[in-house]
Design a binder for these strands. Structure first.
Length: 266
DNA sequence: CTGGGGAGGGGGCCC
DNA sequence: GGGGCCCCCTCCCCA
């Protein structure tokens, strides 16, 4: 499921100057410029060689879009129609937004959902010629968001590592980072596309957990994981089985429930 | 089998 | 144009 609705068909694509686009790729000894002195070796390296960590990172994760599998209404659609948050037509609860969770003001409108989730397969950090990422299929007809009309008529920039194309050079450069993975952890050698991803990874080394649950004493290193955890405090979960109305805190749990044969569906 | 934590991914938006 | 952050998704693994 390509996340970007900016992705255009290969036709009428324009090959940019890649010499200009190439982001700096750092070797393991060099910290990402963007990350500066973040990479302080506060812990001993793991027992395994760095290559092992990289291989682990290269594990393909994606198994297809759950939105596509279950023909879920995109949360964005639900928001638009009901205005009741991303619970959408499936969920009957009131999902907590991040800023609600953390008492933060909302900074910007929510981007379209359901079209997120990119080519998966992170890392393949070492194979940098062919696109290493098993790109996800679009969720399906009707779910595909059309690029803006003016974008369609504009030129687009295509990625040299994969078939994606973008309407702006900046978007393409950002995408190319997912291939070049310029941010490398000094501790384990794992590579990331963005500095903040690396920061999150470094927390796994340092044990820092800045996101605390307001309902229990549990803390998390990752905001998304706190959000998922908060669902566990909710009586009515966000994702509901259409057959038996049972609710789940995660879409993956709902998927497993339906895959395993919902009692009411059989 | 189920629930949940941990880790990581992507594009978009704002500054 | 780049960096930082946001939001949401996905997968693996374990209890």
């Amino acid at each position: 499921m390509p996340r970007s609705f900016l992705v255009k068909k290969p036709s009428s694509t324009r090959i940019p100057n890649y010499g200009q686009l190439d982001t700096r790729a750092h070797d393991v000894d060099g910290a990402c410029d963007s990350c500066g002195g973040l990479l302080v070796p506060v812990l001993r390296p793991p027992a395994g060689p760095p290559a092992a960590a990289a291989c682990d990172a290269a594990r393909p994760r994606d198994r297809g879009s759950l939105f596509a599998r279950f023909s879920l209404p995109l949360p964005a659609e639900a928001k638009g129609s009901a205005g009741a948050g991303s619970a959408g037509a499936r969920g009957s609860g009131t999902p907590l937004k991040d800023n609600q969770i953390l008492n933060l003001p909302r900074r910007r409108p929510v981007a379209p959902e359901g079209l997120r989730g990119g080519c998966g397969g992170a890392a393949e950090a070492l194979g940098r010629l062919a696109c290493p990422k098993p790109c996800r299929p679009f969720p399906g007809p009707g779910r595909r968001r059309q690029p803006p009309r003016d974008l369609q008529s504009r030129r687009c920039f295509s990625c040299k590592y994969c078939e994606k194309a973008y309407g702006s050079l900046g978007a393409l450069k950002m995408h190319i980072r997912t291939h070049t993975l310029p941010c490398v952890c000094k501790i384990c050698g794992k590579a990331f596309s963005r500095p903040w991803l690396l920061q999150g990874h470094i927390r796994t080394h340092t044990g820092e957990k800045p996101y605390a649950c307001p309902h229990c004493s549990r803390a998390f290193a990752d905001r998304s994981n706190l959000r998922a955890h908060l669902q566990t405090h909710s009586d009515v979960k966000k994702y509901q089985c259409r057959a038996c109305s049972k609710t789940f805190s995660r879409m993956s749990l709902l998927a497993r429930h339906e895959d395993g044969g919902c009692c009411a569906a059989s």
